[in-house]
Each structure stands twice: as structure tokens, then as C-alpha cells.
Simulated assay, not measured.
Amino acid sequence: MATKRDYYEVLGITKTAEGDVIKSAYRKMAIKFHPDKNPDDPTAEDKFKEAAEAYEVLSNADKRARYDRYGHQGMGGGGGGGPQNMEDIFSQFGDIFGGGGGGGFEGFFGGGRQGGGRRQKKGSNLRIKLKLDLEEIANGVEKKIKVKRYVACQPCSGTGAKNGTDMKTCPTCQGQGQIKRVVNTMLGQMVSSSTCPTCNGEGKTIVSTCDVCKGEGRQLHEEVIPINIPAGVANDMQLSMNGKGNFPERGGVPGDLLIQIEEEPHEFLKRDGNNIMFEQYISFVDAALGASLEVPTIEGKVKIKVDPGTQPGKILRLRGKGIKDLNGYGRGDQLIHLNVWTPKNVSNQERELLEKLRDSDNFTPHPGKNEKGFFEKVKEYFA
């Protein structure tokens, strides 16, 4: 699989570019690489689609923020989940060129694309929330979910017509799905197009409807879909699966399945980016004499050593015990913050022992020798 280029690089803009700049840059790239303007360049259409994908992400505030933080992986496994073919691009972004749907592009370039102007419909997207625990987020996981979605009716092959064939060419648009009009202007003839009102852009009309779907071309179907969740996803991140949404009425391409990640809190551990934070309480006896303790990690319990004379606020680090990076850049650590537990109630015997220790110079705090605070240590660790 080819490596995707940075979306900002594709449009030739900086990461601080605002909406009008992004729109203008996309318009420029679309004009430059439009296939009708580059009939001898086999790479033009790919570059045209690449620009559309970049614009689809960077023109959306939520998608852009997710891309800035997680890169292509944050867009659902390497792509923006945006327009996949020329018809989708014409439909979604035609307004940038002064028209709606496919008409804007056709009017701008003085005609339609070769092979007819009928636009392929796309079904609606499905949205679900997927709860993941910290262990699943740290290592990645495959989940199987049950969804109800519209799929193409099998007896009529999604056409809505009886046996899938009882249809005729639309007499209004002659099968093109669009009505074109030529307008004379000072700059010459301009071609505009609009969806055919008779067939709603389908190019054909039904003579007799399918007995199963009653002409709708689709049926509600329950399906179990496996979803591969990459390691390192974050709360509220949205992943997408192309073609796993609803099939549109009477033909077209299915929409997408959009998966929103919901991170469930862990009983003991707390996430901080790719690192795991844990608060470990020890007695002042263990702090003074040292101890061997077990602490939880996302991979199970491990033993740690507390050195004699440990001061409150000390941070221990377990390398590689954090969360895998979403973009594959290693793995975080687990940071253990040691807190010394002070008992609130002591027995008479314990009080006597503590009174004796109070008088010992070894148990008297020395000004200027106190350890740094927890957040100061964390700041130093990441410096």
C-alpha cells in the first residue's frame, strides 16, 4: 500500500491555513488536475482524488483536529473516509466551482465527463459507539458488532424493478440522469446541468416494481461486522469502514460505518497520552527500610523495588508498559508515583514507638533536602 502524502502538502498550504485559503487551494488543484483537462496524463485523476480527499478532511473542523493529532491513522486506518470516486467528488464539492452537484464542475469545464453525466447515489452513513477498556486500547483488538442496515434487494439486484429488468430509459433525460441547458453569455456558451425531475437522476424509470422490496431496491438486514481497532486510539476518536453503511434506494453505493471510540475508565490506572499513571501508597516503614511490592499494569501485575530512604513523591518508571503509539512510533511507559501513607489512628503501643522515633535525628526533616513534587518530576521526565 502506497504511503499517503500529508494533506497540507497535497494542497500546498500551511497548518495554520484558514477556511478560505483551504478552499482556494483545493479549487486550484482541482482545476490543475481535472481529468478532462489532462487527457494524456494517466496520473491526473489520482491527483484530483487526492486533492479532494485532503479538502474533505481539512475543511471539516472535527476531522482536521483529529488528523492534526493522529495523522492518517486517526482518519480510520489511513484515509479520510471521504469521496472515493469522481461522481462523489462532483456531488460533494461542485459548489466550489459555482454550481451544485455535478453541474458546477460541468459548467466550469464546458461539458460533462466522458461516458454520461448520471451521478451515482450514495447511501446514508451508520454511526455507532464502541466501548473499549484500557487493555484493548493499549494493544489493539478485533471487535464483532451486530448492526441493522439496508442492503441491496437480491431478487431485483437493488433496482426496485421486477426481476431487476422491468425498467425503461427515462424519456426526459434519455438515460443521462441530468438535464443540460446551454446559456449564451458574454464569455460564450456556458453549460449547466440539473438532476432530471422524472427519474431523480437514475436514468431509468420502473415499469413494474419488485414484489419483495416494493420498488425500494433495498431490504433491512442484520449483520455481524468484524472491526479491527488499532492500538493507541483515543476517547471520541472516529474510525470509518467504507461501504458498511446503508444501501440507497434503487441502486448506488452503500454509505460508511462510522465508529466513535468510548474509552472506559480503569479501576486503578490512568492514561496520559501513551503513558500510564499509577498512584502507589506505601507505609513510612517501607519508605525508610525499602520493600518489594506488586503493582498493576495493563499486562498484569509486576514487582517493583522501593529503595530504602525513598522520599514521598518519587516516581518510578516501567519502560514499555504504556500504550502503543497509534502511528507505530514505539510504546509509552508506566509512571508510578509513590505516596507515603500516614495512619490517622494509632494504638498506645504504636504511639510509644513513634514518640521514641521522633527524638531520633534520622527521623527529623532537614530543611532544603525535601524531594520535589510529583508534577515537577513529571515535567522533568518529559523535558
Rank of each mutant, 00 (worst) to 15 (best):
M75H: 04
T209L: 11
C170V: 03
C199Q: 10
A152N: 07
E9N: 10
E87K: 09
K4L: 08
G332Y: 09
T198L: 01
K379T: 11
G320C: 06
G12A: 09
L132I: 07
A65G: 01
R317V: 15
V151P: 06
D256S: 15
R331D: 01
T185C: 05
T16H: 04
D41P: 09
V346R: 13
T172Q: 10
Q178V: 13
Y329C: 07
N362W: 06
I31R: 11
C196K: 09
G112H: 11
A17M: 04
I276A: 03
P343G: 03
T342A: 08
F108S: 02
D133K: 06
R69M: 12
I225N: 07
N275P: 06
R119D: 08
P35Y: 02
N275K: 09
P265Y: 03
P248C: 08
I282Q: 02
M237F: 04
S59W: 00
E299Q: 13
E262Y: 13
V183Y: 04
G290M: 07
V253H: 08
R5W: 10
E299W: 03
N184F: 07
N327T: 01
K324I: 00
G111L: 01
T310M: 05
G74H: 05
R118D: 06
D40A: 14
F363G: 04
E222R: 09
E355K: 08
G232K: 01
K321G: 04
G116T: 07
D325A: 07
F48T: 05
G201A: 12
R27S: 07
K321F: 14
G117Y: 11
G201H: 11
K180P: 03
G177T: 02
K143V: 10
